[in-house]
Design a protein around this nucleic acid. Structure first.
Length: 474
RNA sequence: GGCCUGAUGGCGGAGCGGUUACGCAGCGGAUUGCAAAUCCGUGUACCCCGGUUCGAGUCCGGGUCAGGCCUCCA
């Protein structure tokens, strides 16, 4: 079965065919590193991490190149560095490190490449130069601007015409612009701001050029998939296409920059967009103190990536319970060997444009089947006795395969239920459980319940089973 | 004003022209010293009005409501 992806540019779901299956390229817009990432910022990271894992599964681990940029030149960074009286690199390194640690906590693999603007100034300057040479950009008063009128297809990604944009313009038009929609490729730095050399004077790049230049320099054009949040469609990605296409010789098609465009929907709080400017943000950094990163990841994958996702405590609590159930199945059936089966492709549910909610339901189905084949009455007939263990193994294999691509259920089930309890606590719990076992053997229910209360006080829940008691952190 | 999404049972959330989604919670039962966990069973749904069709949450038209982009933004 083929992978199908909803392409924002073509506005349809299309079979994904990479330009070169030996080198599949994926680029996702990454963070501007001036403060902590919020949970809305984490959605594309997790979504495209699943895509990255899926592509690696399909094309091979070494045949997928995933780049996610780190924007380390920005007004807000400058401001913060000024406030603290330090070099911008102090700020950007600090928050890039925090970002990577937070995303790792969500189970996101490190991208193959994490290009930084400061390390790609040559590529940026060179792409701007190419744009000028090709007649798509002009220098004026220390600025270099992209000439939107020179690019016929401008507006095709976001489905707007230049006329509409001019009619609806709400931005003050700088006097040096030929056209209100012309956007900055290079601009002079203000007093005290970091600056880089260029043929147009010392200054710094505009917002959009970094991505198209780094893509050209690090991945090569055209790339297969470009992803990001829905709000980046305009102007950011629209401008990227304009730059990436027009900087090339003789190519004048949108697909010559990126062949598939994917955009994730928003996270909302009370049905309203979560954004830094609205102030209704939850930081990943704080969230992972309160919930296992895996719970946060599972919650992020609970809706299809293009749909809005309303972020609530209920969602997190339900996610926790769902993972508890599947980890419970893994714990109770840890001896079941894995067995692949060619008739069963557990990844199929993801092939239809990354249908992660369907993948979740598939995991439940597989987990239920494992239990069923291992425990149930199907063992009555001799044939069933032979077949059931095999069926259980096939289901377990499928469960594992799908979970690996989703990037969940990677922990040892016992560790999961211990919830990061340290050795001291574990030892204490084990001792109490032993004492309770003795009490129960003597039918001393009062003592057994007293011990259970004591465990409850430690935030530990006891689960009695046929093979003795197991426990989990509540 | 222009462009674009979405509206599914108490909640989360898939699906798609014709059979149970799934999960959480609830309810009934099994099991258990009790509880938890587990197992079995179970109810409730497709925003409104037209249309197409043998048949429509599923397609088409209109409406209502909600949200997003057009300005930094995942």
């Amino acid at each position: 079965m083929k992978l199908k992806l909803q392409d924002t540019l073509k506005r349809e779901k299309r079979d994904f065919v990479p330009r070169d299956p030996k080198r599949v390229t994926l680029y996702v817009c990454g963070p501007t590193v001036y403060n902590h990432a919020h949970i809305g910022n984490a959605r594309p990271v997790v979504v495209f991490d699943v895509l990255f894992r899926l592509l690696r599964e399909i094309y091979g681990v070494d045949h997928v190149v995933y780049a996610r940029n780190i924007t380390d030149v920005d007004d807000k960074i400058n401001q913060k560095a000024m406030d603290e009286g330090v070099d911008i690199s102090v700020i950007t390194n600090r928050y890039a490190d925090i970002y990577n640690a937070d995303m790792a906590a969500l189970g996101a693999l490190r991208p193959t490449l994490e290009p930084r603007v400061t390390a790609n100034m040559d590529a940026i300057v060179s792409q701007i130069g190419a744009l000028i040479n090709n007649g798509h950009a002009y220098a004026a008063e220390g600025h270099v601007l992209f000439d939107v009128a020179s690019y016929k297809s401008y507006g095709s990604l976001s489905n707007r015409s230049l006329d509409d944009m001019i009619a609806g313009a709400r931005v003050e038009v700088a006097p040096y612009k030929k056209n209100a929609q012309d956007f900055v490729l290079w601009k002079p730095s203000k007093e005290g701001e970091p600056r880089w050399d260029s043929p147009w004077g010392e200054g710094r790049p505009g917002w959009h050029i970094e991505c198209s230049a780094m893509i050209e320099a690090n991945l090569g054009l055209p790339i297969d998939i470009h992803g990001g949040g829905h709000d980046l469609i305009f102007p950011h990605h629209e401008n990227e296409i304009a730059q990436g296409v027009c900087a090339q010789h003789g190519h004048k098609h949108e697909e010559d920059y990126a062949r598939y465009w994917m955009h994730n929907g928003f996270l909302t709080m009370d049905a309203e967009k979560m954004s830094k400017s609205l102030g209704n943000v939850l930081l990943v950094h704080d969230l992972i103190q309160q919930y296992p990163g895996e719970v946060v990841r599972w919650a992020l994958l609970s809706a299809h990536y293009r749909s809005p996702l309303n972020w609530t405590k209920d969602l997190l609590d339900q996610s926790r319970k769902e993972l508890d159930y599947i980890y419970g199945v893994l714990l109770r059936n840890k001896n079941v060997p894995l067995k692949a089966h060619q008739m069963e492709n557990p990844l199929e549910v993801l092939m239809d444009d990354l249908n992660t909610p369907l993948a979740k339901s598939k995991l439940f189905e597989l987990a239920k089947n494992v239990e069923h084949f291992v425990n149930s009455e199907v063992k009555r007939t001799e044939l069933a006795q032979e077949v059931a263990p095999v069926a259980a193994s096939i289901c377990m294999y499928s469960l594992r395969s799908l979970a690996n691509v989703l990037g969940v259920l990677q922990q040892d089930p016992e560790d999961w239920f211990k919830g990061g309890a340290d050795d001291d606590l574990s030892a204490k719990v084990e001792a109490l459980l032993e004492a309770r076992k003795t009490a129960r053997a003597e039918k001393n229910w009062g003592e057994a319940d007293r011990i259970r209360d004591e465990l409850n006080a430690l935030n530990v829940e006891v689960m009695d089973g046929p093979q003795g008691a197991t426990w989990k952190i509540k």
